[in-house]
Simulated assay, not measured.
Amino acid sequence: MEAERGIIVVADEERAHASFGLSPMSVHRFLQQLYNGLEHRLLETKQAFTIRRELPGVERGCHYEPLYSYDLFVPVLSPSDDVEAVIVLSRFGAAFTDDEAVEAEQLGKHISISLQKFALYEEAEKDRRLTEDIFNHLPEGIQLVDLHGTNKLMNGRMKGWFAATADGWQEAPEWKQRLCALAADEQALSVLLDQAVFGPADELSVMAYELKENRIVMEVYAELLYGGGTKFGTIFVHPVVTKQVEVDRMKSKLVSTVSHELRTPLVGILGLAELLRNKPLALERQYKYLTAIYQEAERLTALINDFLDVQSAWKPLGKCIIGSRLTSFQSLKKSLKQKN
């Protein structure tokens, strides 16, 4: 356009801009004065227009005669025909022709398309960051592989647990070998991973495995991911279940202990009841046996009440553990489907 200077300003509160041939002070002054009446003409006509203004003395340099600047204002219209940016080009001595104004309007249309692409990119980038934040804040390790078993995504938790690189483990043989080498039962974990990626969908299973070095107990379960009815990958979820395993062990030990403790008073009650039933005894002896039966029954009742109290305390814990894991996995699966 053979302009000596120019600027483009986004028509929003932030007024993002780019310029050439203008000092920072001139840009600041222009931004302050841009919306002092000129924007109304752009909003009404939505067409390029030119104004001529006489340069003040400080801009004339060595020229003493009047010198004029011709400013071309070009609106950048959005698809909804709103002014989303303004282009201003200035040159001295020669006015902009009608053909140049039309050319500038075409430039504005191309810039509008570019701004739409920027907006779409920023929205996609925002969604990507949101998905990444969800992945990295989940308590479970998350891994996504494609149809060929190539590792496509690992969240921060997974990388930290298994010391993966920033890009994760890529090809199936590499990441599977490195992951299985950390487990106490390498063969069983390898079979489950192959089955989940390459096997039939109805044979997916869950497996708990223990890490060799720190004795942490992990669990892995898989879910096939579909988009438009077509499978596009498999997601593995690796929660830490050490506490749950310890709780299960304690519960099993408790049941065993309670069973033993319940058996002791029952043996006494049954033995004394059998004597009272089958053998004639003196009244004093009968009273003594009945007293012993009553005491053992009270002991049995106390043990049963204690066991029920412990059981009721365990139920919320189990529901909390299962519920939190299901909620995390369901939100993750929904996010992946939307992303695909």
Rank of each mutant, 00 (worst) to 15 (best):
M1H: 09
A3R: 05
R5W: 10
G6Q: 02
E14V: 06
A16D: 11
E54W: 06
R60S: 06
P66A: 13
L67K: 05
L67E: 14
Y68V: 10
Y70S: 12
L77V: 09
S78Q: 02
S78K: 01
L89P: 02
A95I: 10
D98A: 13
E100K: 07
A104D: 09
K109V: 09
I113S: 07
S114D: 08
F118I: 10
E122N: 00
R129G: 02
E140Q: 13
I142T: 06
G160E: 12
G160L: 12
F162K: 03
F162C: 09
E171P: 01
E171V: 11
R178H: 07
L182Y: 00
E186D: 04
E203H: 06
Y209A: 06
E210K: 05
N214P: 01
R215F: 07
Y221I: 03
A222N: 12
L224I: 12
Y226V: 10
G233A: 11
T234G: 14
H238T: 08
V240M: 09
K243V: 15
S252C: 05
L275E: 09
L276S: 02
E284T: 08
I293N: 03
L303H: 03
D306I: 05
W314E: 15
K315M: 13
L317M: 15
G318K: 06
K319L: 13
I322P: 01
L336T: 04
